[in-house]
Nucleic acid binder design. Structure first.
Lengths: 168, 168
DNA sequence: CATAGTGCTTGCACTTTGCAAGTATATATG
DNA sequence: CATATATACTTGCAAAGTGCAAGCACTATG
């Protein structure tokens, strides 16, 4: 109870706390996109993320997908199930090791993806329009470091955070 | 199918899409914080957000809280219920209009808040340490505009987004 | 060729959410 | 002043989502 005193006293204002501000923007943007793909295609958030991942690869196994879009194996399995039911993806047993099923996008899956991606790009364009070129570059580079640091924070867990008030 | 052609063709790579990058950072940071306050105090995410809001006001009614932390009235009601059960908040009927109950934080609620805020500040400090002063300033100002623009996008809904490919 | 290990899936209990309907209070109207 | 309408939540319940133990299919290893 030494180095945390400042934070304990002045409080932390939610609306000025960087992580909350990032969350707010992300959440406000996710809402219209999500209502689009869920109303239009009956897709869940996990389903959409997996669709986006298999759209940029010819085939992927479940753990690759999980890594690429930050979903646990259960969610991936269920998401793939949803996509195959909708006819947006197919599972083929892997060639060499048949534990790894290769998931790939179908023609109609790609069509759906393109429509959602168009909306996603429209949203991104609206956001980027509010920023100067310099700001875009700064944010792009800063975000790369923030992604890395937040991954480390996540991996360490909260116990590590309270200890290392002394650590670098 | 003119202005959306680019997006439709080249795809939109999830890992390079600004909203997803913001979401990733926010999600990775939320995880350790959430496991801390849920393990330690049995608080839900909504509960924590409400606690943070009432920590910086002497009293608030449910709709104020909802506006301040982007929660719908149901979630607010349940969150307040949780906080009062935990002894972290009290509801008093409003003085003039008794439909508006005034919610305020208790002594032990503030104690809990301070401990969570300390962890939150530690996380923020780790993130900010990865950025230069200039970057912090840029991000602060850019984020203000992104918050406003994403609120507009959210309010408009997805239909508005597909039409106004021509609008400013 | 039994044993252990990996990658993924299923079932089931538990939690969270969304929404219709309800309560309590306040204001407006005949 | 009774009644209607509006506001500000609150509750109950069904639907959806999540977490986890156990299971299945397959491969690697002694």
């Amino acid at each position: 109870m030494k180095q945390t005193a400042r934070a304990a006293e002045d409080g932390l204002k939610l609306s000025a706390w960087l992580p909350y501000r990032l969350f707010l923007v992300a959440a406000q943007i996710a809402r219209p996109l999500e209502s689009f793909y869920s109303e239009t295609f009956g897709l869940s958030q996990a389903g959409w993320r997996i669709l986006a991942v298999i759209a940029e690869r010819d085939a992927a196994n479940a753990s690759e997908i999980g890594r690429a879009c930050a979903l646990d194996p259960f969610a991936v399995s269920r998401g793939i199930g949803q996509l195959t039911e909708l006819g947006f993806a197919v599972r083929r047993p892997g060639k060499t090791d048949r534990r790894f099923a290769a998931v790939s996008i179908t023609r109609s899956g790609r069509a759906a993806f393109n429509r959602i991606a168009a909306l996603g790009s429209a949203i991104e364009a609206r956001l980027l329009a509010r920023l100067s070129d310099g700001e875009r570059a700064t944010i792009d580079s800063a975000l790369t470091r923030l992604e890395a640091e937040s991954a480390r924070i996540d991996a360490g867990g909260w116990r590590a955070l309270l200890d290392d008030a002394s650590a670098p």
